[in-house]
Design a protein around this nucleic acid. Structure first.
Length: 306
DNA sequence: CCCGACTGAAAACCCAGAAC
DNA sequence: GTTCTGGGTTTTCAGTCGGG
C-alpha cells in the first residue's frame, strides 16, 4: 500500500477541524492557542517605540528559525520578556551586529534564546543570516520580500531552494540558511497574519506541515499507512494535498494549519481525547519516537484508550 | 516547607552518503 | 546528475522525591 493520502477523507477531517475552531468546540473553548502571539506583539511595540520600521519584521523573520526542534510554547515564553528584549535587541539589528564578531553575536544569541537542543544550530547560522540581511537587503527583510514580487510562493521557494538543500548550497546561492519547507511557510504565514508585511497574495506559501499536523491526519485515516514510512515523504504529500484542498474550497491555509496544529499539540500531545473535537473521527494515538529516532511515521496505536 | 538532585518527555528539521 | 534513505543530537522544564 505504501503511503496513501485520501483526498476525500482529508477534506472531511479538515472541515470538521475548521468548524470546531470557529465554534469554539471542545479544546478550542478558550480560543485558538497561539504561542507566538505575545512575543510578536512585543517586538512590534518595541519597534514602534524605537522608531525602527524594520525591527519587528527582522526580529520575527530571524526568530522563526528557532521554531525548530524546540517546544514552541516554551520557546516563546522564554523570550517574551521586555527587559531581555531591550537588553538583547542588538542581535536583531543587522547594522549594529556588523561591528561585532561572529562569536559575540552567537554568545548574545545563546543568552537570549537559551536554545533547547536541536536548534543550537540556528545560533551558529545567526551571524551569517544577519550579515547577509545587511549586505544584500539593506538591513531590512522586507526588501527581500519585495525582491520576490511580494509573492508568498516565490518567497518560500527562494528560502527553501529545494527540499533538503544543503547549508553550503544555500550560502552559494546567497540565500538565508535554516529555512526549510516548514519554517519558510511558517515565516510568511506569521508575517502576513500579524501585519508585518503586505503580500500580494495573502493565501499562498503552503501549510507548515509538522509532526502534529500529520499525526492528526494519520490518526483519522486521512493518511493511510500499513507500516512505518518516511516522514519527509509523508509531510511533502500532506502539504501538497492541503494546498489543493485549500484552493478547492476557498479555505485559508493559515486556518487549516492552526486548526490541525492545535488539535495535535493541545489535544493528542496532552492526551486530551475526551476534549477533542475529532474524537469520533480518530481511532488511535501514534508515538513521536519513530519520527525523532528514525525519521518515520509509525501508524501503530500506542494507547489512546489507556 | 523548601531546596537540590534526578528523571523523563518534548522539540512546526537537516544533511551525508547511498542508490538510482 | 538527481532522488531517496536513514539517522542524528541536546537543552529545557515540569514533576517527583528525599533530606534538611
Amino acid at each position: 500500500m505504501g503511503i496513501e493520502v485520501d483526498l476525500q477523507r482529508t477534506t472531511e477531517v479538515v472541515e470538521k477541524a475548521l468548524i470546531a475552531m470557529d465554534n469554539r468546540q471542545k479544546l478550542f473553548s478558550k480560543g485558538v492557542f497561539r504561542p507566538e502571539k505575545t512575543f510578536i506583539e512585543m517586538v512590534k511595540g518595541y519597534g514602534e517605540r524605537i522608531i525602527r520600521p524594520a525591527f519587528a519584521s527582522n526580529a520575527l523573520f530571524l526568530t522563526t528559525a528557532f521554531v525548530f526542534g524546540d517546544d514552541t510554547e516554551r520557546l516563546f515564553e522564554r523570550i517574551a520578556n521586555t527587559r531581555y528584549l531591550f537588553e538583547y535587541s542588538w542581535i536583531f539589528d543587522p547594522k549594529e551586529a556588523m561591528n561585532k564578531s561572529d562569536e559575540e553575536i552567537m554568545a548574545g544569541c545563546t543568552e537570549f534564546f537559551r536554545p533547547a537542543g536541536y536548534n543550537r544550530r540556528v545560533v551558529s547560522e545567526w551571524p551569517y543570516n544577519l550579515k547577509l540581511l545587511e549586505r544584500k537587503f539593506g538591513g531590512d527583510i522586507r526588501n527581500f520580500f519585495n525582491k520576490h514580487d511580494r509573492n508568498m510562493e516565490k518567497i518560500v521557494q527562494a528560502l527553501v531552494v529545494r527540499p533538503r538543500a544543503k547549508t553550503m548550497e544555500k550560502k552559494k546561492n546567497g540565500t538565508f540558511t535554516r529555512y526549510g519547507p516548514k519554517i519558510a511557510t511558517l515565516v510568511v504565514q506569521w508575517m502576513n497574519q500579524y501585519g508585518l508585511y503586505k503580500f500580494n497574495n495573502s493565501n499562498g506559501g503552503g501549510v507548515p506541515v509538522d509532526f502534529q499536523v500529520t499525526r492528526v491526519l494519520i490518526q483519522t485515516g486521512a493518511v493511510k499507512l500499513d507500516r512505518p514510512e518516511n516522514a519527509h515523504q509523508i509531510t511533502t504529500l500532506v502539504g501538497r494535498t492541503l494546498g489543493l484542498i485549500s484552493s478547492e474550497h476557498g479555505w485559508q491555509l493559515r486556518r487549516i494549519s492552526e486548526s490541525l496544529w492545535n488539535i495535535g499539540s493541545q489535544g493528542c500531545n496532552q492526551k486530551r481525547h475526551a476534549d477533542c473535537p475529532l474524537q469520533k473521527e480518530c481511532d488511535r494515538l501514534i508515538s513521536r519516537k519513530p519520527y525523532d529516532k528514525d525519521g518515520l511515521f509509525d501508524p501503530k496505536d500506542t494507547g489512546r484508550w489507556e
